[in-house]
Design a protein around this nucleic acid. Structure first.
Length: 216
DNA sequence: CACATGATCGCCT
DNA sequence: GGCGATCATGTGG
């Protein structure tokens, strides 16, 4: 049925066809992914998250992210150094992908950051497809994965070694980036209020309640 | 728009 | 056994 399709889907929505190479976009370097996690979360707003399947490229422009700060962040899966098979990719060197399954039906994708051994990451919360795609198609972490066909089988992939999943540079003016607390982590005590969510204030694809969409 | 709820299941205690 | 780094739908203002 439809729901099962969403969970196991690895096929990108055809409306996301997009060739990053033809536009001359450049990939982020390994060094970039080793920088400060919060900086990276802000810096990849506007970047193109791309994937190749059957020799066809697909992609979407990131408009919303959240930073997860590892062992000291109660909202992070790696809080207090928790190290289980699921979370293991978070401990890899920056530039790897960490994908997890939640609520029995959705996947969420993260860019792992910092040197190996430090389990921090940036959650991709929303993106905009090319003109041909509906504005809300990737509005939310689960929808973003569903539309691009990203699932747990992609967890642990190296964006700088695996030719089929990549992140390309493209920036949004700092003045147009909004900041707020993170969504869906109210159980995390003090960490729930940390200002670690970043979004493109001009985008209609940003997810979450309207009241978190204004502040800066 | 805000808020509530059900769906659905792998992960961790 | 309980509970999510969610989403779609339904209700009421």
């Amino acid at each position: 049925m439809a729901i099962q399709k969403i969970r196991k889907n690895s096929v990108p929505d055809p409306r996301l066809r997009f060739d990053p190479q033809s536009l001359g976009l450049k990939q982020f370097s390994r060094e970039f992914f080793l920088l400060d996690t919060t900086h990276i979360a802000r810096a990849i707003i506007g970047a193109w998250f791309c994937r190749r399947r059957d020799n066809q490229w697909y992609g979407a422009r990131i408009v919303e992210t959240e930073a997860y700060l590892g062992s000291t962040d109660a909202a992070a899966h790696s809080f207090r150094g928790r190290r289980t098979p699921r979370v293991e990719p978070m401990y890899m060197e920056g530039g790897h992908l960490y994908v997890f399954f939640v609520y029995g039906m959705h996947c969420c994708a993260n860019m792992v950051t910092k040197p190996a051994g430090i389990a921090e990451a940036v959650l991709l919360r929303a993106a905009e497809g090319p003109e041909t795609a509906p504005v809300k198609l990737l509005s939310g972490p689960g929808k973003l994965c569903a539309a691009l066909g990203i699932n747990v089988a992609h967890s642990g992939l190296d964006l700088l070694a695996d030719a089929d999943v990549r992140l390309f540079q493209s920036r949004v003016e700092d003045a147009k980036i909004g900041i707020s607390k993170r969504i869906g982590v109210d159980y995390a005590g003090d960490a729930a209020a940390w200002p670690l969510r970043f979004f493109d204030m001009d985008s209609d694809a940003v997810s979450g309640p309207l009241k978190l969409r204004t502040p800066k």
